[in-house]
Amino acid sequence: MKRAFPILVFLVVAFLGYAAYQALVIAPTEQTMGNVQRIFYYHVPSAWTAFLLFSINFIASVTYLIRRNPSADAIALVSAEVGVVFCTVVLVTGPLWARPVWGIWWTWDVRLTSTLVLWLIYLSYLMLRRFSTSGQTPVLAAALAIFGALDVPLVYFSIWIFRTQHPQPVIGGGGSIDPRMMHVLLINWFAFLWLAALLCWSRYRLEYMRRELEETQALEALLEPRSSL
């Protein structure tokens, strides 16, 4: 495992470099927006990855509540943390693109607002995990994750009736995109998925070791002879 990690890091970095080359050099320049549009190859894959990770978090949380399986809880924690990182990338790259193209940093549009609320919900999930005492954390966090999953569609519909300004989604939204751009987008998405998988994997191992250490320490504390008595 220890030896596999540097190799994987190297592979992922190489893949990310190739994807960046594709996005910055190979992909055709957009007609009206120019080079600003290239941030799209980071924005959209990050969004897809974040949504995927939040879905994994939901599935792992439900699994935990049914089976009470500690590794499901660890997967839920890891996917939420890495998901928040990717969601932050989405929320940072969005305004960077919007300023030159729309002329404003931010607008209370349905997609932007829903993503922001999603981000807030998962931050509060991580806060709960951080502040709750260790034994009860998994159940409370799993319950909160289910609340989050119920809240997201309601957030979406509550903001939906305002006029939407965000460009239509490129898949299943009727928007048209150059096939070469689509190709680069998918390459970038796969690179991001690999990065996310690597981050999740190493974070999972860290969490696993942390729990083992905690258990060992608790056991040692029990076994230690009480000198004061």
């Binding site: 609320v117 931050l123 806060m127 809240d151 957030v155």
Partner: peptide, 9 residues
């Protein structure tokens, strides 16, 4: 911290 984000809708 828990209630406000979930109560947004």
């Amino acid at each position: 911290l828990l209630l406000f984000p979930f109560s947004i809708p």
